[in-house]
Design a protein around this nucleic acid. Structure first.
Lengths: 136, 136
DNA sequence: TAAAGTAGGTACCTTTAAGTAACTAGATGA
DNA sequence: TCATCTAGTTACTTAAAGGTACCTACTTTA
């Protein structure tokens, strides 16, 4: 079940971003700088250690972030964005900009439409959707 | 199981891109222009009608693409990118560029390392990974 | 003595989402 | 008359993920 045909270079990259939390991990790492595992887990609220570990391994193996292991007695492991990670985080940022813009546009549109009208119906009744045969 | 905390504008956008085939649908629509359902299904090789329909509905509801229904007797339904879709496709293109660059870099690195060496071992044995307690 | 904090690993369960196949209407072509 | 094409829909099945809980070794603190 690929995101795109096998061999497409996007495929592996998307597989990277696709997992839950991934972009948020990158976001935290970008805005927070090198971060320890526990701190990361606290900031990415709601993520389980298992999934966080899995994501970090994926990202590390793809050279998107760097893992620094300090063998002190309570061991200290720090994660930081690599150059690739920063490159990726920039694009994600751009994506975030688009997302925010759309949301604002939607909010503005909703505001004007509800200025003198009841809450808009969820569906688009006038649209000539292909009739559902089974519904007959 | 959000990709990021609830309320983050990225969340819905990522949910859009995350689904399998989504980016490829956008890619086909971008390079091919308005495309009919069957043609789309043929170009996005391997996708099932069910999933393709689901993705198209998602993208349509998010105003990423436009659906045009022509009630001829074999009905003709055409999908095309909306302005938002083109905006999104641009970013995806950038992401694709990064993916390609990384792949080339990896290939080059692999070529130099295998010039006089056997296939590189898959793991990184020298890295001081935190010892696995259960393995002892 | 026992709990807490470090950074995870592992087993088990559940949920979600994809795949597959069969079905739809109505006209056309063999 | 039956299959085919259009653009899907629906039910059923299955597999891949995530969630939860419990486990590790070692030290410090209460």
């Amino acid at each position: 079940m690929p995101c795109s045909p096998i061999g497409c270079p996007m495929d592996s990259l998307l597989r990277l971003l696709m997992g839950p939390w991934t972009t948020y991990i990158l976001y935290v790492l970008r805005s927070n700088g090198p971060t320890r595992f526990g701190e990361l887990k606290r900031r990415v609220a709601g993520v389980s250690a298992k999934v966080l570990t899995a994501r970090l391994r994926m990202l590390e193996q793809s050279d998107v972030l760097e893992r620094h292991y300090e063998p002190t007695i309570p061991p200290q492991v720090t994660y930081a964005l690599s150059p690739r990670g920063r490159e990726l985080a920039d694009v994600i940022d751009r994506l975030g900009g688009i997302a925010k813009k759309w949301k604002d546009e939607d909010a503005a549109k909703a505001a004007t439409s509800t200025t003198s009208a009841p809450p808009a119906p969820a569906a688009v009744p006038a649209k000539p959707r292909a009739p559902s045969p089974a519904a007959a």
